[in-house]
Design a binder for these strands. Sequence first.
RNA 1: GGCCCGGUCGUCUAGUGGUUAGGAUGCCGCCCUUUCAAGGCGGAGGUCGCGGGUUCAAGUCCCGUCCGGGCUACCA
Length: 524
Amino acid sequence: MSVRVRFAPSPTGLLHVGALRTVLFDYLFARNKGGQLILRIEDTDRTRYNPESEQEFVDTLRWVGIQFDEGPHVGGPHAPYRQSERAAEGIYAKWIAELEAKGHAYKAFETSQELEEMREFQQINKQPLGYFGGDWRDASPEKVEAAIAEGKPYVIRQKMPRDKKIVVQDLIRGRIEFDSNTLPDPVLIKADGMPTYHFAAMVDDHLMGITHVLRGEEWISTSPYHWTLFEMFGWQPPIFVHCPVIVGKDGKKLSKRHGATRVLDYMAQGYMKGALKNFIALIGWAPGDDREVYEDEQELIQAFSIERLQPSPGQFDMEKLRWLNGHRIRLMSPEEILAEIEGLLAEAHTVQYWENFVDEPMPNQKPIDGKEVLGKVQFLVKRAHEDRDYVLKAIKEERERVGSLVDFGDACEFFIVADDSLNYDPKATAKWFTGQAHVPALFDFLTACCENGTFGADTPAEEYENAIKDYFASSGLDKLGPIVHPTRVALTGKTVGPGLFELMAVLGPERIKNRVARARTMLS
RNA sequence: GGCCCGGUCGUCUAGUGGUUAGGAUGCCGCCCUUUCAAGGCGGAGGUCGCGGGUUCAAGUCCCGUCCGGGCUACCA
């Protein structure tokens, strides 16, 4: 039988990295097995429903490049794929009626206040918490009829078996045993007529022919309800796969204080979908050999095996993500990198993210100005429209020292900025300009080279190197540093960056001349 | 409290009775070099949560224990 898996988010908020990992596993598994991936929207809780949420899922999944074979936006043989719409079609009503007829479900008429009091009583008397039958599990038909006739609101509960060992099979943990006497009767249909997750998800999983249910491990404790529901209907249960959670640096569930949790925020920060997916797949899964870089997604799909999922929770290590992202950038051509940066800026969320960015600066770090970060990347793209070849050369030189796409904004800035608005780092000028007697002559030499054609428009880096080393030989200096460093500061305003000769070849004589002239005015 | 799940270098992990416990990241050093990186090479870092057992042999099997986490809603 063909593998069918589903991603079934509840549209209550944003799509975070934990959920991404679950869909990723769904996706990798489905593609590896040549099966189908289904999107189902679990919008049965009207109180928590967030109308923008579904769009968030669609945007995020589109960005990461996970496509569904069936779902609300692509249709399919089991439509509709939103549970609110399925409820309206009477799907759940039909199946709950069958369950009641079989005696596996019953109506319960307690008010929420009565349930509250019951819980308090249980707490005080150290009894197991939960609804184990109350007045209604074994109520006579007449009593139930009377309550209905009175118009009392009710829920429908699952009549859990008693004195029974319930064994749930989990693919990565094996048998999980529960004593049915510790399991209260869960609500299947709420007073508003809507099904709970426990009911709707299982009915749909069966109806949609789902073979493997991948979900977070927080569902383990409710899995015996789900398992027995399948037994009550006489349906073949799917294979349950409870994925471990992703936690933050302190071992607690990943939250805002660990950094971004929203998947789209990683996009905005310049992490590429391929790197993110590669990284996230490796939390809780490993191929078994020592491989961990998958440049080609097809290879990741091929390597993926659901049996190799791990049961223990994993931490989200930003440093490693950054490394993987940078590694991937280095594998790309400047053209590909520029295209990625342009694509990134075309995403509305990127702009929104940086414009509203509020940094929580670490103890002794200067805060990040989101608008400045964005501005630099936007400037890079703007300059790319004006002079694409030039910007590509700058990207090529800076490719070695970035961890994310947005880093190029700052890294390439000195290349693309107008000569008269280049920023000079005061510490750099203080170190290499002031009190350096040989620097004026050096600047004269550089200017002369620009004017006499030694530095031409197409002069390669090696010739810049030869010219400067010749000058060094005749200068009487014993180290190349005093020549190279002031030149670097004059041309870039910084002490760090690409190789001097390479960056000179990119800048060309015009810019070199202008910048040296400006630097000269800063000599004191 | 009850019921479940988990526990190998800081982190992600390999490992299914016999390995000097391997790889990656991060950290440190060396090489390269005009700087910062990148890259190459090397190093430190693990009494496999702890305690018992089984066995000639245990990270691997069994029991206990501790710690962490989840659930205990008419939320998912």
